[in-house]
């Protein structure tokens, strides 16, 4: 029973690729709009060989990683502050709650006005998207830290600073990690929006250029690369997260 499941699972993707190849080559569909996997593979190989792939990958990775790190750092810092101090929360939380539901992609037009097609604008979009998710999960996590743990720490003479850095932050960590993981996919959404809005390199930028040239194979290759990037990022994070919440 189990073995069959594993076997079928291993066949899932190859079967799909073969079916796609057969259908695309059979003439049932327009091969220009719907190229077979072999054509996509060739496009990918050429992309890599020309060296352009690594430039695109580098540009996109830079935006995602920098935006994620900055957004997450801001989100955690402000989440701890609003979660811990009622006054800071009264000041900032209403504002954040108003801004948070606006899809980050909707900020593309104004970001172009503010920053043009610069890197700053793209980073801004990613930071914006990541920030609110991480802020909210940190804020909630901090508020849900077991009161008993805080009291126990107080009784042991834990100074205020240590209380924030250690007890509150670690107590909230399981929530923060969940927020960070959601923020990874958000950082990719916002990356797509940022590069579609206009760029000079990047995986999504390359997809758009290929689309304009009707290089459908290249478009699909780009999609595959983007999917793979996002997948690897998520898996990497899951592995890191397991170690971050080490006491579980």
């Amino acid at each position: 029973m189990k073995r069959i499941n594993i076997l079928v699972g291993a066949l899932s993707i190859p079967l799909f690729v073969v079916a796609w190849e057969v259908i695309a080559r059979s003439g049932i569909v327009n091969a220009v709009l719907f190229p077979p996997p072999s054509v996509v593979a060739v496009a990918l190989v050429e992309w890599v060989r020309s060296g352009q792939f690594f430039l695109d990958l580098g540009a996109s990775l830079y935006r995602v990683v920098t935006g994620f790190v900055v957004g997450a750092a801001l989100g955690i810092a402000l989440g701890v502050l609003t979660g811990q101090f009622a006054l800071v929360s009264s000041l900032l939380s209403p504002l954040f709650h108003i801004l948070r539901p606006i899809p980050p992609i909707a900020f593309v037009p104004i970001v172009i006005l503010w920053f043009g097609l610069s890197e700053t604008g793209k980073l801004f979009l990613v930071v914006w998207g990541v920030f609110f998710t991480v802020w909210l999960s940190t804020h909630i996590g901090v508020q849900k830290v077991d009161r008993g743990l805080i009291r126990a720490a107080q009784m042991l003479g834990t100074p205020r600073r240590q209380m924030l850095q250690e007890i509150v932050l670690l107590g909230a960590l399981p929530y923060i990690v969940v927020g960070l993981r959601t923020a990874i996919s958000i950082s990719f959404y916002t990356l797509v929006a940022a590069e579609l809005a206009g760029a000079f390199a990047g995986i999504v930028y390359r997809i758009e250029i290929a689309q304009q040239n009707l290089q459908t194979g290249q478009v699909m290759g780009g999609l595959a690369a983007l999917g793979l990037m996002s997948f690897v990022a998520d898996r990497l994070f899951a592995a890191v997260a397991e170690r971050t919440v080490w006491w579980r």
């Binding site: 008993g148 743990l149 720490a153 107080q154 009784m155 003479g157 007890i167 670690l170 080490w246 006491w247």
Partner: peptide, 20 residues
């Protein structure tokens, strides 16, 4: 006025730091 290290407390729940 506030907790002091010369006064220790054990609660009904252990409230151990789970990460330690």
């Amino acid at each position: 006025q506030r907790p002091r290290p010369d006064v220790g407390m054990v609660f009904q729940q252990p409230h151990l730091f789970p990460w330690k």
